[in-house]
Design a protein around this nucleic acid. Structure first.
Lengths: 140, 140
DNA sequence: ATGGCTTCTTGTATTAAATACAAAGTTAAA
DNA sequence: TTTAACTTTGTATTTAATACAAGAAGCCAT
């Protein structure tokens, strides 16, 4: 949960050069209020009550646009699902193999300088850690 | 290219508790001689000349078995393709966004101790770096 | 406002990766 | 040799994602 006044949402989109249409605002709002790194399907199910006519294609279009403009980060941590993170600051992710939840990790010391050979140019770094979360360990 | 005598291949499978069937040996051999982190489709195309009756399902079955037994690592570096790495020693990967090639990176200093909260249990760490490789930079 | 242009959204069709599953084939063991 | 267990195959199915054309909505100038 967060400050999601429509005016703020509009400005976020405008700053990235994205026209603030109704659906785009709703999807952005959803991402900011549901920071669980949702899949397209989760967003669809979350919004279709409020917007019954919403099409999945619109969500795909919108997220691809957001990703292009650097407004969301694309996570391929799951084998068969693309997830979207509204927080584009560099950080790592932990996926629990029991409950499937994806957690943000901010305390990873990662030094990629000198990681790639001479002449290679880095544009993005993705660090995925998998295992069992504390919740699921307690449960079992 | 590498030492891929059939006897060695048999032993590798046996050590992991995998019955060394004809197809499994062929797929293992392919992985050891083509260390490009191939997709299922690449393996299929690479082997179907030699084994015309080979089914893709067999490759899926075999790779899932290999992964279960810890003989290959599963890479989800691409958005829409699963790749397989016969080298299961911990190392990072670089994917060139121009030519699509996946390179091994052995010089990354990565310290994940203290990265996850109390009570979390780590089973795997995947580090993906994306950008443009030296080859493609020269080309353009 | 009205018409016309651009942009956005929708829905259907399509592609492609991956799995399910039952039948056929093969191997190993009794 | 017969039986049981395992492996492979092929078809059908599922599902994520894209393509694309038609429709809807917003925007601008006259």
């Amino acid at each position: 949960m967060e400050n999601t006044r429509v005016e703020d949402l509009r400005n976020i989109l405008k700053e990235k050069g994205i026209q603030p249409s109704y659906h785009r605002l709703k999807i952005l709002k959803y991402l900011m209020e549901n920071k669980v790194h949702p899949t397209v399907d989760m967003i669809y199910r979350g919004l279709s009550a409020e917007i019954p006519t919403l099409s999945k294609t619109t969500i795909y279009n919108t997220l691809n646009l957001f990703a292009e403009k650097g407004l969301v980060a694309v996570l391929t941590i799951g084998e068969r699902e693309t997830r979207y993170d509204i927080n584009v600051q560099p950080h790592a992710h932990f996926k629990c193999e029991s409950c499937g939840r994806v957690y943000d990790l901010w305390d990873v010391k990662l030094d990629v300088s000198g990681a790639v050979p001479e002449g290679f140019e880095i544009s993005r770094v993705e660090l995925y850690i998998k295992g069992i979360c504390a919740n699921c360990r307690k449960g079992s």
